[in-house]
């Protein structure tokens, strides 16, 4: 098993963090991983992305030409990366900010991650809703390991942050993955 994932959104949507949580959870599950960020001069706005590879074997290039999965959080990122999804690949899309039709040979999961996050009370956790969606759809990462990563990353004793991320992940997992 080798899963190549491009995660993209606008600067500030937490796509780098999404990738880091994903690979650390995969590490806990005994997988090989690489995480490779875009490191252009854009800091806020624009599009930001990272490339994540999860595998049972030693990983060659951390750079991804054709992805097995795209996790896309805004429209400009969709335009930029939709051609990078390989035939039969999975597109996980934030329908709060982008829509996609005409999916020939692609599997698409579109859900309003941003709206779901706002309903939870913090727009910033839209990335973790998307992660939950990926975890449930691909089943290569144990959700308990994601929670372990949350615990290790949350500022000491900040249970509120931990809880809302846990909820966001759960919401994502519970979305209909048909």
């Amino acid at each position: 098993m080798t899963e190549r994932i491009i995660i993209a959104g606008s600067g500030g949507q937490g796509v780098m963090l999404l990738g880091k949580v994903l690979v650390q959870a995969a590490m806990l599950g005994g997988k090989q991983i690489t995480w490779f960020p875009a490191y252009g001069p854009e800091v806020r706005g624009g599009t930001s992305h990272c490339m994540v590879v999860v595998s049972d074997q030693e990983i060659g290039s951390p750079y991804i030409g054709q992805a097995d999965t795209l996790i896309i959080l805004n429209r400009p990122s969709l335009e930029k990366f939709k051609s990078r999804l390989k035939a039969g690949g999975l597109l996980i899309l934030n329908s709060s900010l982008a829509g996609f039709k005409g999916a020939k040979g692609l599997k698409i999961l579109q859900f309003p991650f941003t709206d779901i996050a706002m309903n939870l009370g913090n727009i910033k956790v839209a990335n973790m809703v998307a992660l939950g969606c990926f975890v449930a759809a691909k089943k290569i990462i144990d959700p308990d390991n994601v929670l372990e990563v949350f615990k290790s990353m949350a500022p000491a004793g900040n249970l509120k942050i931990l809880e809302i991320n846990r909820q966001a992940l759960k919401e994502g997992e519970n979305l209909n993955h048909g």
Partner: peptide
């Protein structure tokens, strides 16, 4: 190179 510098691994 830039890949090695930027890439994260265990």
């Amino acid at each position: 190179d830039g890949v090695l510098g930027q890439m994260m691994e265990p």
